[in-house]
Design a protein around this nucleic acid. Structure first.
Lengths: 226, 226, 226, 226
DNA sequence: AATGAATGAGACTTCATTCAT
DNA sequence: TATGAATGAAGTCTCATTCAT
């Protein structure tokens, strides 16, 4: 995969199970709360606002309101708006790593299909891929964090490709081209999923069906004999 | 193609053949100049600044400086910053349409490869795909313009797929899935090309080679018999 | 003089003659104006607000209001609040230099008396010495500018002392101590003048009388034979 | 002395003899401690932070950290940041009074020299004179406290001057001018000492040497016959 | 008595847009 | 038509102070 590929950052799981988040704004003052939980709430709120408004147009005021805290409180947990984005990115990176680690069993095809499905689920939960791409490209530090987030995935697929090549099961395709194809496909489908999630034209295809079909076509194409 | 696909918006041709494009800001007073040319210069400058700073962070001041005009002058040609982006998008849409119209000859494979190569060239010239995606998603009017830009391409590929299906040359794959695959691949490769253009990790692959290889793999995969 | 001495920064003269400054706030929009004049008006307003509120408590809003412009306009002329202070300091430094250059004639006593009187007049016009001391001590860049402002004066008095010593007209006092005495006296009187200007206890003494008396005492003290 | 003169606020003595003063912030939980001591620690910490950052830029957070307590605790001992400054000022005033009371023996010259040396030592320990001047000028209540701090000194020197005049030992100089000279000299030297303490240019002169020389020159100057 | 999370007013600054020249 | 000074709304961030624990 070639740098722009993407990861399997899925279920954060642990963090935002708190369903009592929505204590919107009526209390005088937020009661004390476990800092880790408050932090997670802010991240969740930020994800929501970022997805809706983009990074620049998302205001700290709105993030705070969404999180049900005052604006100043944000700065007790994060250095600033940009830091919130970075924290979000790291959080996503960690769950991506966890998801990859959790996988490692079936065939290459199955693995790819699963990665793809994870991507699509992730984007369903947090349609932030386009925003992250944009910020990664504009802000070096975000870029680095974004890179790191996808590094594991990239390493994994590359390893698998190496094995397949060694076993002669792929026809003569430049392995970098193969990598590029798979990576681009993932990126493209992820973007597509985000657009679908946002109501762009078509029904979102089921992650499982789509993942399986796409991988099937790609792998058939890579294996085909001339 | 499924809504998020992308187009062949390539050579604007008309606009920047002018070799005096790089008149960044030195002239004392803009000599007489055809308004259309002035407009094109502003668009060119805006594309450059948008690519470098993103939409929100690009300031009208910087665009004006890059175009070698004063800030006020921008408003003699465009309604505002957002209008400049829309104009840019329309300009790109028009050249995409022109490119598609110019094409229509070879096989489906050749056509796809050419579309892909066009995309990559376009992104090389104006690495704005990520920005446009982001703005399209955030701003309805940009979204509509973006959609329109890719509509022609989408229609065209869909037609071709229909023909292929009718001729029984594709194996049993849901045509929407096929469309999704091709569209996603294009989107993914375009994003990849923009990232490469911005120095992201790998050498940019040659548009021609990449286009051909990718299309070959995809079509083989779509044709393969079970 | 020993580093903390101070200068003869007096009449800016040219700049703020504009008596039409007080076009307080009724117009829709400030008409165009010669930038240099607008700049000087802002400096004048800032001096006034700084003197009244101190640096930190002076708000850009109040400076703008005092100058009769909008807040944003400040930033067309200066990089920020701190830059306004630096500009003020430089302006004062320049008039101090000019005042010193204009002087160079009479005896050492006359010169000192004149420097002192200048100081007191300066502080009468802009009671900013205490503020400048504080900021010079807290902010390196202000410190440097402050230093530079007094460098000329320091050099001048040191030269004069050297001459007096060479001619044996001063009794055996460490020249650095002499310098310290004169410098401290100037600083102390300047502070005293600022306090008086601010209504601190006593009537402000006339610059001329005070300058003459003080210098007389000091020089008598320095010349006295054991 | 003329209002702006300054005092001999020297060794607080009682307060910080405690050698555990430097308990910056390491203890886990403040063990039992006499409230008066805790108060003194906070004042000490505040002095340090005020000297380093100025009054406005000193944050309660930093003062608390420096004192090794939590922010909230500050408010158990003081009404607020401003109150801490006032308490500090009063503390300094008290030790100044004590120092004056302790003195009263030698000649006028000796007394002046000692006052001066005290000043310089005080500023060495707490370089806050400039800050206090600034705040005294901006805040009426601080101004009053500052005034009170120097009132004793002022009274004392004025008395001495009256005696000297009565004895005909001073030549015909307006007693107010004499007072102004001595007061200004003290203020000037104190400022100079603070600047030196802060690394401003020259080596700090020894308090004793400087005090003696300065007083010698001044008194000679005041005594000189025409 | 001590803590430190929460608050929110208000500071500085940016920038798209307007409009007198 | 071109200019760029002026505007002011809105954004990010700071920090003294409060108060539940």
């Amino acid at each position: 995969m070639s740098g722009h590929s993407l990861s399997t950052m899925s279920q954060e799981g642990s963090v935002d199970s708190a369903s009592d988040k929505a204590l919107t704004s009526s209390e005088q003052r937020q009661p004390r709360r476990r800092p880790a939980q408050r932090r997670a709430e802010i991240l969740e709120a930020a994800a929501e606002v970022f997805a809706r408004k983009g990074f620049e147009r998302a205001t700290t005021k709105e993030i705070a309101a969404q999180a049900g805290v005052s604006e100043g409180t944000l700065y007790n947990y994060f250095g600033g708006k940009r830091d919130i984005l970075l924290a979000l990115l790291n959080q996503m990176g960690e769950s991506a790593s966890a998801a990859i680690a959790r996988m490692q069993n079936g065939s290459f095809e199955e693995m790819l299909a699963q990665l793809l499905a994870d991507q699509i689920r992730m984007v369903h939960r947090r349609p932030l891929m386009i925003l992250l791409l944009q910020q990664a490209v504009l802000d070096d530090e975000v870029g680095r964090a974004f890179d790191q987030m996808i590094a594991g995935l990239q390493r994994e697929t590359m390893n698998q490709f190496a094995t397949l090549f060694a076993s002669g099961k792929l026809r003569t395709v430049d392995p970098f081209v193969a990598e590029e194809i798979v990576g681009s496909m993932m990126m493209g489908l992820t973007i597509g999923a985000e657009l679908a999630e946002r109501g762009w034209h078509h029904e979102p295809l089921s992650p499982e069906v789509l993942g399986k079909s796409v991988v099937d076509v790609i792998m058939k194409g890579l294996r085909a004999r001339t």
